[in-house]
């Protein structure tokens, strides 16, 4: 009876209680940081002695925070676009190619997700120092594209595996060129996969800290690098304000994703 929700008896009370506690544990830091950002205590006392918006004012008045956010957005957008395009091409080969070592190739292209980021970070940093790409936007984008690539390939190959190729072939029989068939039949059919790939690839770059710490220069900082610096220096409530905005952004992204998925899957 252990897999019958209605017949678990007293065990159900215990397990539901435990699940609720874990859900609260998962929610706690997210809610806490938002509340904290409105608290008036410089020393992060909680519950705060009063409520204020001054940390948000300080945040928005500081051009280094704005710059860091814009840099992050720019790099994440470029990395996500590159990863989705390159990943889309690679996925066709991984799903439909007929060559030996296809599984090996898949493993190779997914390795950046498994290898500890710190190993890749110092490797690519040393390499970029040598070829003059360290501390440049293009270097950042290349490194983040590699890290984002697995997150693009996984949903796209999954979508492509679920797509019946004979539909594409039918279009070709009916006179479409192979390219037309792909653009007008295949791509629209796997759009949910492509869309998920774009979101995941964007987040992979947007949230990335370790490579960014090495790549950053005084003039080129992403948001995580800026936050990292503040956390190491002091626990300023301005970080709480910046973090709350990031939580808001995450929520927006989740809602947009849910809505778009519903619309696209119609």
């Amino acid at each position: 009876m252990l897999l019958d929700y209605d017949r678990l008896g007293w065990l159900r009370v215990a397990l539901v209680g435990f699940t609720a506690a874990v859900a609260a544990f998962l929610l706690l830091p997210v809610v806490f940081i938002v509340l904290l950002s409105f608290g008036s205590s410089r020393w992060l006392a909680f519950p705060p002695p009063g409520w204020t918006l001054k940390w948000y004012q300080q945040l928005l008045a500081d051009p280094t925070w704005i710059d860091a956010a814009l840099t992050s957005a720019k790099i994440a957008a470029m990395a996500a676009i590159s990863a989705v395009i390159i990943g889309l091409f690679a996925s066709f080969s991984l799903v439909r190619g007929e060559f030996r070592g296809r599984q090996l190739l898949r493993g190779l292209l997914l390795t950046p997700m498994v290898l500890p980021v710190v190993v890749f970070a110092i490797a690519v940093y040393a390499f970029f120092l040598r070829i003059g790409l360290a501390g440049t936007t293009i270097g950042f984008v290349i490194a983040h594209t590699i890290l984002a690539l697995p997150f693009a390939i996984i949903p796209i190959t999954a979508a492509l595996e679920g797509f019946d190729k004979s539909i594409e072939d039918a279009a070709i029989v009916c006179g479409a060129s192979p390219l037309q068939a792909k653009l007008r039949i295949t791509l629209p059919s796997i759009r949910i996969g492509i869309f998920s790939a774009a979101i995941f690839a964007f987040l992979a770059s947007w949230d990335e800290v370790v490579v960014a710490i090495f790549m950053a220069s005084p003039t080129l900082q992403t948001l995580p690098v800026k936050i990292w610096g503040s956390l190491r220096a002091d626990l300023s409530p301005v970080v709480a304000a910046a973090s709350s905005l990031l939580v808001g952004l995450t929520l927006c992204l989740m809602i947009v994703t849910a809505l778009l998925r519903r619309k696209l899957s119609r």
Binding site: A23, L26, L27, L28, P29, V30, F32, I33, L36, L203, W206, D207, V209, P224, I227, W228, L231, L235, V239, A240, S243, L246, V247, T250, L251, L253, M254
Partner: peptide, 15 residues
């Protein structure tokens, strides 16, 4: 679970 997973890593650690 998804909200916590998608929230910025540094944000969660800071909290």
């Amino acid at each position: 679970i998804i909200l916590s997973m998608w929230t910025n890593l540094l944000t969660r650690t800071y909290a």
